[in-house]
Amino acid sequence: MEVLLHDVDVLVPRDLDEALRVLAERRGIKVLAGGTDLLVQMRSGAVQKSDLLDVSGLWELKYVRHEDETIAIGALTTFSEIASSEVIRRHAPVLAEAAETVGSVQIMNKGTIGGNVVNASPAADSLPALYVHDAELKLASLKGTRTVGITEFYRGYKRLDMRPDELLVEVRLRAEKGGEVGHFFKHGLRQGDAISVVNGAVLLDLEGDLVRGAAIALGAVAPTVVRAHEAERALKGRRLREDVMWEAARAVLRSISPIDDVRGSAAYRRELSVNYVFMTLWRIAREVGVL
């Protein structure tokens, strides 16, 4: 049964300052960015109907900047803008790959990185890329601005380190260093436009075939996106050879706790996780010419 939104008011702030004032004064109001998830959830009844603060027109929160070793992305930057940004393609290609697979062209044109982060779906496609890039989130309120690391931000399933009067204004990530190479992967039930059954990102710091550093994150296999620390440890300081890759891929099982749901069973997700991590490591090894 569809919930009608005829009695939902939508406030449109003129600027960021006004948006923060509304958030401070009107408890219970929800922030609307691209609307690709919130409007669907509200109409289906999955999210309680409430008034909305439509921030999608705040152009000051749409930007990609390269600041020294950091990439700063305005929270309202769309996935189309991220996928086509030269700065992101060059310095955070794992995120560019994730942005390209987040959904259809129509979804990429509306969905924002800030919305993806705050909506907090464990299957959100930008998140594994943000985890391997050690992203930090800049939250603003009338009381000031604070920065939270992405792993600290998610406290549990859809539980965030974020007050109701705060707005996510910027996502900051470490630019890829020389020697680093990585990829995003996604298993959806439909290639063009799907919610991930399993997704993830692998970022290796290589010197020849020696793994100096490894970051692996997986989504849709736990209440939040997780870093696969056991798998990372299985790689660090070792040569990128097939047996090492298998050992690391199997080690991801120690970091995940998938469930059965409409998109796939827990057993299927475990198998996908191992195989996709292996395939991604193998792809990287082939690309850098060590396999």
């Binding site: 939508v10 449109v12 609307l32 691209g34 609307g35 690709t36 409007l39 669907v40 909305l52 439509d54 999608s56 027109g57 129509q106 979804i107 509306k110």
Partner: peptide, 8 residues
């Protein structure tokens, strides 16, 4: 998508 676009 027109279905995901609020009038505002």
């Amino acid at each position: 998508h027109a279905c995901l676009t609020a009038m505002t």
